[in-house]
Design a protein around this nucleic acid. Structure first.
Lengths: 227, 227
DNA sequence: GCAACATACTCCGCCCCGGAGTATGTTGCC
DNA sequence: GGCAACATACTCCGGGGCGGAGTATGTTGC
């Protein structure tokens, strides 16, 4: 059976296709789109800004940052304007109304790249481009995920402790990494619960509209971690 | 066949070049090699086992798991034996002495893929294929990394708190993700310190040779996290 | 006897990486 | 005023990895 997966310029929307785009948008797409929603950028600035603001969330190398806007333009989600300084050209990218729309849809829904972890965090970071309820829903989902993951990790740990695992001689080294996963998933679950609670008291998604920086947001995360 | 076509540095013996292989080995390479060091596997078993044991450490899709052993064979680090069940052939892969050697070298040194995080954790998980001192060195490095990362994260958090960041209106959402990074890096630093301490009391790297499962390895990671 | 499942793979388009390469602006210093 | 250093503005390419589709043969259970 011939694969018709590449239906490029046919404007044929796949079933799972994110709104108007003729491809599945990636986390990179949404990251760039979120930046463009703030103001127009040249690719160079975009690369700088991606490095500054997205490095911790979802790092992307410069070559990718140069590519993605072109695709967004092809999808009709961004637009490019050519400018010149002497004989030196440069492109300035802006977001289109369609672009804002898919961004809003992404912030509002489950749609988007399957790679949940990193894109969820991005969703939080740019939540002020969407609605308060979107943020709450995302946090609720993340909390559920984190709790489930924690439960799984604990179950695995308990199993190793009880049975010794398939290679009991290896248990000491295994215990080291297991403890690491416990620590990480507990941290995640703790955070998700905290964040959900904090946002429960918000009236909006920015400072002006009623969001508040929680008192303990920037301090020691675990009060007991002090030493 | 030396596919050296793209590397014009011909005579330059890269110090980071993993021993005899004509390419830079990836984390995947070491993961597979570590499995092969335990026993021979068919690709199908390998894929199963990768999913079982490496899913949390460094997940790889099946197609990659089928590809990698071929490369390892080309590098002389693994060997393939063809077997038949009726007219159905299958390959069984085993590790070569050269393979064990690069695995030992990887466990002993800094060499390997730059992507430190995930490969370090793998190094811990298969540390029983190497020496106790290798494990200690890896943990010391990880602890230093974790501490530095924590310091950076705290510095960024403090900066946001003091200056409000470039977009003060966005501070509430930013504070959410910042807190998440604080939580994560604290967890990591806490773990690294714990692990280093635990291993300090070991005499070997397996149970038989004097490694012990720490008492609190499988319990609540943070004693305060109980609720 | 046949369906369902397990085994044993191959192939392909796409994303992303990271480093090399190519230009042309602007700034600062002697 | 000249020139080096740095900033800006990109393109190109090989390779790793993903994930889903496709192919084919063995084994098991009803």
């Amino acid at each position: 059976m011939p694969n018709e997966s590449s239906a490029p310029e046919g404007a044929a929307p796949g079933p799972a296709a994110a709104s108007s785009a003729g491809r599945t948008l990636t986390t990179t797409s949404y990251a760039i789109l979120a930046l463009l929603a703030v103001r127009p950028w040249t690719p160079y600035e975009l690369a700088q800004q991606m490095d500054r603001s997205m490095r911790w969330l979802t790092p992307r190398s410069a070559s990718v940052v140069y590519e993605e806007p072109k695709r967004l333009v092809a999808d009709g989600l961004a637009e490019a304007a050519k400018e010149f300084t002497g004989k030196r050209g440069r492109t300035v990218y802006g977001i289109t109304e369609a672009g804002r729309e898919v961004l809003r849809a992404w912030l509002a829904g489950e749609a988007g790249p399957a790679d949940a972890r990193e894109s969820d965090l991005l969703r939080i970071a740019v939540a002020d481009l969407g609605e308060l309820d979107d943020l709450r829903r995302t946090l609720a989902r993340m909390r559920a995920d984190a709790d489930e993951r924690l439960a799984q990790t604990r179950a695995r740990a308990a199993e190793y402790q009880d049975t010794g695992g398939p290679f009991p001689a290896r248990l000491p080294v295994i215990s080291l990494v297991t403890r690491m996963f416990l620590e990480q998933s507990e941290a995640m679950a703790r955070w998700a619960a905290w964040a959900e609670e904090a946002v429960a008291e918000w009236d909006g998604v920015t400072r002006e509209t009623g969001a508040r920086v929680p008192d303990d947001a920037f301090g020691e995360a675990g009060s007991e971690a002090r030493e």
